[in-house]
């Protein structure tokens, strides 16, 4: 689900205006209390009426923001409103914490004074900006994934799928270019590769090109040994000649020129498998973009939450 698309914008419009209005009101109160409109200006501190109010609001919002995790993982079946609405509120309220807590923290980012306050300020900034970055990435990367990775699979299953590709390529090549005995042995039969869970079972059907031995197709074996097999087996295929679509195209073109017509379809299938591998590499990179920010966002949020609780306790004790 894209966060901001034409369909979702109506849900965000209310929150967007609410955040703008709340920020404006907070700034207005802050500068009015500080004496901007008459009198000498003094920065209202965190314990001033506006500063304290913003601190309480910011703390309450952070506590709410933290609830998104149990909402998505622990309370999934509960009737607590759709996760989509929770995410919308999470986004916009999280954005609102930045002005509120900067006003509460007296614009202080200098560690020479109160280290905890400054660390909290910087953590808040990092959390909010990582969240904003995440929202932007979530709007861009899925589109790219859709356009550029048509063979997309589940990220955690990439290595599993590649292992199947490797087996399939091996069987195809052996059946086409190996000995006649090997061709018979490599006749594809439905193989149950999934696990049985209750009544459900997954079956992986290896259905390659017709396993027919083709004479004078030894070049296929050499090509497979030299390029395809290492590329499909490698943890990172970036160094392979097949990682580049142009070079891969040229290599397969050259291979096909040396193959008789009946083996052309096998070469095409190998090219397709390699193309999938390239897409999986791209998918892995996009996936890293899509979720690395989240790791930073969550980890820093946890640190922020822990230190915020300590800050609240100390602030109330020595108010």
């Amino acid at each position: 689900m894209l966060v901001f698309d034409r369909e979702n914008w109506p849900y965000h419009r209310f929150w967007c205006w609410a955040v703008v209005v709340a920020t404006g009101a907070a700034v207005l109160w802050y500068v009015a209390y500080g004496g901007l409109f008459g009198g000498s200006w003094q920065w209202p501190g965190g314990s001033s009426p506006p500063g304290f109010t913003f601190g309480v609001m910011g703390g309450a919002i952070i506590a709410f923001e933290m609830l998104l995790w149990p909402r998505k993982s622990l309370w999934r079946g509960w009737r607590l409103g759709r996760t989509k609405y929770w995410l919308t509120a999470h986004l916009w309220l999280g954005l609102l914490t930045l002005p509120l807590l900067i006003l509460h923290g007296d614009f202080r980012f200098d560690p020479s004074r109160s280290t905890l306050a400054v660390v909290l300020m910087w953590l808040t900034v990092i959390v909010v900006f990582s969240g904003v970055l995440g929202a932007v990435i979530q709007n861009i990367v899925p589109r790219m994934m859709l356009d550029r990775v048509p063979a997309e699979t589940i990220h955690a299953q990439i290595r599993h799928v590649l292992a199947q590709y490797r087996d399939e390529a091996e069987q195809l090549v052996q059946a086409t270019s190996g000995s006649a005995q090997a061709a018979v042995e490599s006749t594809p039969t439905p193989v149950e590769t999934g696990r049985r869970i209750g009544r459900a079972a997954s079956m992986t059907i290896l259905e390659p090109a017709t396993p027919r031995h083709v004479a004078d197709s030894e070049a296929l074996i050499a090509f497979h040994r030299e390029h395809v097999e290492p590329y499909l087996a490698a943890r990172s295929g970036a160094k392979s000649a097949l990682a580049s679509p142009r070079r891969a195209g040229a290599l397969f073109q050259a291979l096909k020129a040396n193959l008789p017509d009946p083996a052309q379809a096998v070469a095409d299938r190998l090219a397709e498998l390699c193309d999938h591998r390239r897409q999986f590499d791209l998918q892995a990179r996009l996936h890293a973009w899509l979720y690395t920010w989240l790791a930073v966002h969550v980890a820093i949020s946890i640190a922020l939450f822990v230190l915020m609780i300590f800050h609240i306790v100390m602030a109330l004790k020595y108010v």
Partner: peptide, 30 residues
Amino acid sequence: SRIELGYYRRPDAAARRRGRLVLLALVAAG
């Protein structure tokens, strides 16, 4: 059909990385 049915029961690498970072943040703050 190439996907394992119970794949989601195991945390993927990203989730494991996230878990380690959360632990590190908790330890550092504490």
